[in-house]
Nucleic acid binder design. Structure first.
Length: 297
DNA sequence: CTCTCGATATTCCCTTGAAA
DNA sequence: TTTCAAGGGAATATCGAGAG
């Protein structure tokens, strides 16, 4: 081997992002990638399977495949949504082997995993593989820009380039990445993260939800805000009420808000009152708040 | 045109370690 | 404890360029 200098992971990603020519510096990702529609299907019947392709990647710990897919989502910003690079380039971007032969094998395996999930299409472009992204829902349909159309299938959230430029792609473990994407897809300023509910909605295991939340809070990306009282007839203490910790994303991951959410946020009083159980009896679930208990040192 | 050779991609097999 | 992805090594397939 020669001592020829090699482009590092950070520089490779920076170059790939630069080539994407996105002025927004954020990657649109359809909500269907993390959660399929849980209301009605086409024939009007209720569906119970709400997990998106992300759940498949998380449940089988396909960390590298997710990393590669997010990079592809970032890089393919127009035209036929395809991209052609050497396997070594992708491998460097993933922070893996710089040895050409091993890199090619690794990246090829990852392409196949994504191909099996019908998230990308692979074709030969000379000696290199041309990869074209498909719709994020795993349907295998050709990709379209979610910003162009309205409708449930085109609801999307944005992953900021800072995810890579600030090094979160290497610092966060798979559970934290999964929770980050799932949380951003809610497009709410504030939301609860119940192990069991999140596990059910997004198809992760409750342990994965807990691990992801722990790391996101530890890294300061997820900020506990306040507690709310919710009706839950199955609450463990049999009170019929449940206290839920609410969270909000820190910058730069606080960029996803639905239009309704923006309005509600603007209308919300600056200081909400603390509730008593008596107050709660006459209130609607989720409409009142309690101050977050201060963490003891 | 076609054969050869080097470069690159793909796939299979195996071991190791982490998540469920 | 079981399952399965990551990753290394090796064999094979494919592509492009150059020579005859």
């Amino acid at each position: 081997m020669s001592d020829q200098p090699t482009l590092g992971q950070t520089e490779t990603i920076a170059e790939l992002l630069r080539l994407s020519r996105r002025s927004s510096e954020a990657v649109p990702i359809r909500r269907y990638f993390v959660q399929q529609d849980d209301r009605v299907v086409d024939n009007g019947r209720q569906t119970t399977n709400t997990r998106g392709p992300l759940a498949s990647l998380v449940r089988t710990s396909q960390t590298s495949a997710l990393d590669l897919l997010l990079l592809v989502y970032a890089v393919t910003s127009g035209g036929d949504y395809g991209t052609t690079h050497y396997a070594t380039t992708w491998s460097r971007a993933l922070g893996k082997s710089f040895v050409a032969k091993g890199a090619a094998a690794q990246v090829s395996r990852l392409w196949r995993q994504l191909e099996d999930l019908r998230l990308i299409e692979r074709a030969n472009d000379g000696r290199r593989a041309k990869v074209t992204k498909l719709l994020e829902d795993g349907s295998g349909q050709p990709y379209t820009n979610p910003g162009g159309d309205t409708g449930l299938r085109n609801i999307y959230f944005k992953l900021p380039y800072a995810y890579w430029t600030d090094g979160w792609h290497t610092r966060l473990a798979l559970p934290a990445k999964a929770l980050l994407l799932a949380g951003m897809s809610r497009r709410k300023h504030e939301f609860a993260i119940s192990d069991r509910s999140f596990a059910r909605w997004y198809g992760f295991s409750p342990a994965t939800v807990a691990r992801g939340r722990k790391q996101l809070v530890g890294e300061g990306l997820l900020i506990p805000t306040r507690c709310t009282l919710e009706v839950n007839l199955h609450s463990p203490d049999m009170t019929g009420l449940e206290t839920r910790q609410q969270y909000t994303f820190a910058a730069p991951f606080d960029l996803n808000l639905s239009i309704d959410e923006e309005k509600a946020l603007a209308a919300r009083p600056a200081d909400e009152t603390t509730v008593t159980p008596e107050d709660f009896l006459f209130a609607q679930p989720g409409r009142i708040s309690m101050p977050t208990r201060k963490a003891t040192a």
